[in-house]
Each structure stands twice: as C-alpha cells, then as structure tokens.
Design a protein around this nucleic acid. Structure first.
Lengths: 209, 209
DNA sequence: ACGGGTGCTCTACCCTGTAGACACTACGGT
DNA sequence: ACCGTAGTGTCTACAGGGTAGAGCACCCGT
C-alpha cells in the first residue's frame, strides 16, 4: 500500500495523496486504508520511511568517504522523489525525535554508528551529524528549487520570469538567470562537501581512523 | 491582514490558517479576503514575505561578519516564528525563482549585493550564497526539530520516547537523549559558521575586502 | 441623478479526513 | 453443523476546507 502511495506522490505530487485518491488507485474503499494506517499522517510517515529505506550507507573504511557517498546517494534519492522532499523536511518538525517512526530514524542511527566507529564520542558525533545533515538538506533544497517547475512551464519561462522582475529592485537576482541554466548539482555538492569535511577535519581533531 | 494571518500562524500553527478562520479573526466574511489575496497560496506567500521582511542585513564592512550576523538574525527569526519555517522551506519548492513574490526574493537580492560588493562575480556570489543559505536552513531545521513538541508533552516526554525505542535497533540514537537537553543552538550555529567561512576563505580566494 | 468602482456578504459546490455502524470471509474449537 | 472471533472491506454521514458567482451597500467624480 505504501508503495502505491509513493507512486501516487511521485507521479502527481504531494497534495494528491488523499485517502480517497489512494483508495481509488487501489480499487478499495477509502476507509479500508485505515486498517493499515491509523491516519493520513501515519501514511505520510510510512512513505518517508519507505523512501529513506532506499538510502544506503556504503561499507567503506574511511568515514569521510562514507559521508560523501551517502550524501550523493541522498541527493539522488531526492532527485528521484522530489515531491517527497517536503515530507522529509516537514514531518520531523511536528514529531519529537523519540516519537518518529523507526524508518525515519534509521539514517540517523546509521550515521551515528558510522561516526562512533570512526572514533567520535556521542557529542562529537552529534556535532558532525548536525553539520553534515544540515548542509545536505540545505543543498538538496537549494537544488530542487531550481528544478521543480510547474509542468506547463519550462526553463525558458523561468528565465522569462526572472527577466521581468523590476530591474531597479532586483539587479543582482536578475543576473542569475544565465547562471542557473548551467547549474550542476553534483559537482556543487562535492565542492560543498570538500569545504565541510575540511572544516570538520580542522575544527575537531580527526579521531583515530 | 497579513499581520493577522501571521499572528494566527504564530499562535495556532500553520494548519489553522484557513480562509474561514482568518476571516472570523478579522470579523469579516471569508470571501472578503479574496479582495487582498487572490489565493490561499498567495496569502501564504504574503506571510513569508512579511516574516522575511523582519530580516535585517547589517551595514558592516566585513562581508563575513555581515553573513555571520545575518545568520544569527535569521535564526532568531526562525525561533520567533517556528510555525512559519515550513513555509520558508516549502513554498520556494513549488514556485520557480522568477515567479516568487518580491518579499521572498529580497534576502537573496541583498545577500547577492553584499557579496558582489565584497568583490565576488555573479558565479562566485551564487556559489557562496548557496553554501551559506543551505547551511543556514539546515541548521535552523535541525534546531527546530528538537523544539517543536506537542503542547501536552514536555521535554521529559520527549526523552521518555527516546528511551523506549527498541534498544537493539537504535543504540546510538538512544544515547542522544541526555545530549539534546543541553543543546545550545546559538553557539552551534557559530561553530558551523566558523567551519563554513573558513572553508569558503580557502576554497575561493578571498577577493578584495 | 447616475454610472462605476470598492468592499463585503450569502449561497452553493465540490473536495477532504475520518467516526460509526455494518457486512462478509476465514478459521479454530466444540 | 454451529458458534465466536478476528481480519477486512464497505456505506453513510458529518465537519471542515477553498473558492466561484451573484448580489448587496457605499462612495466618488461627473
């Protein structure tokens, strides 16, 4: 059922995941869904869990390399499921850490394990995780902002919009138009990781590898 | 009207900003609101614009200092209006850059101006902006996740929840409970900025100050 | 006096989540 | 064969949402 829900979201967007629509997609009465999810919210949590389950943390010796690959994996996941990204961001804001569904906590657990194994204590690991995940989330959101366009508008329309901003008020933003066309999220992510990991290396002493 | 809407969101949460509720708060018919906002979505955009308008970018010579102070200002703004943060994150995902309301673009414009004045060209400035805003957004989201709790549960309940995770599956996450109590977002933000700005300094050559 | 805006209200339509009662199937015990 | 029980699916109904469309009342320039 969650698979169908995810499919619906991927295809039609988040708003169209309603109990009624999902029910009809499954050929069941909407109320039948309540046998499997207590709530629409629980259903959303299920979908995020499903998506986060796609994330794989590679078994590599070097923790920085693990973080780097995981970051790219996360980015790909976000590009694969752009409509789910809002869920990844918003749901945690309305659910205290301890009450989140296991699927949503697994990445955190895995990264903490990874960092602990690399020699960090809890505080240090939490520190690194925060900086890392914060950066990652920020990057993905930034990248998606350029991408997600209404189906009936294409990139030229986007720039059209940009060019029509009042030039007096937004001279710098208007200049961005040509730059956004050639945006390469992958290398930008890599460069960001360079900065972050270098910073982490110097600010915390790199513990035993 | 936007002020009333913001007040409603601050007090009662995002979900409770409905045309009907806002109308009744203003003592007007819900349909009257459509004179001032074409849409509920436009209304939401208005609220984000209002909140972003609170952001002040200080007139200081050193651009890194400007970014640092702006970051703290943004953090304070987020703590002041936690229920609005989802809007700041989500709305841009469904609106191409060029079509966003001016209020939502002003911070971008100002930061680009700041960086341009510091000597960056467009590409460099965009680069810095992305890393900066991404990090900032990530930090704020991370920090808010620990804060927002249902009104009827307090921090002890949060930890209660954490301790009740299956220990076999989440050994590391469970250890976080004591750490989260002493979390200090302000200094954590500062440390993150240290890392980021140091990284930026070394990766791009610091242009003419 | 009068046409035209401007602000507002009423009604109505369709979409949503979900509570409550009910039915149908399968199955194990007697 | 009979019953209870659990699991599953369905129907109906309600309270809320966004918003289209028609129609008020007022005010203002002519």
């Amino acid at each position: 059922m969650l698979a169908a829900a995810l499919e619906l979201v991927d295809d039609e967007g988040l708003e169209s995941l309603s109990m009624r629509r999902l029910g009809s997609k499954l050929g069941k009465d909407p109320m039948a869904l309540y046998r499997y999810a207590t709530n629409r919210e629980a259903l959303l949590d299920g979908v995020t869990g499903l998506v986060l389950g796609e994330l794989i943390i590679p078994p590599v010796a070097d923790w920085q390399e693990q973080l780097r690959r995981t970051a790219h994996d996360f980015r790909n996941l976000a590009l694969r499921h752009p409509h789910v990204v809002p869920l990844l961001v918003i749901r945690p804001l309305s659910t205290p850490l301890g009450l989140r569904p296991p699927g949503a906590l697994r990445p955190l657990e895995q990264v903490m394990a990874l960092l602990t194994k690399a020699g960090f204590d809890s505080a240090g690991a939490l520190h690194v995780y925060r900086a890392y995940y914060g950066f990652l989330l920020g990057h993905v959101l930034n990248e998606l902002e350029e991408f997600v366009v209404d189906p009936d508008e294409d990139e030229s329309v986007l720039r059209h919009g940009l060019y029509h901003l009042p030039q007096s008020d937004f001279p710098h933003v208007r200049e961005l138009a040509p730059l956004l066309v050639g945006y390469d999220g992958k290398t930008e992510l890599d460069q960001g990781l360079d900065i972050l990991l270098a910073g982490l290396n110097s600010s915390l002493g790199n513990p035993a590898g």
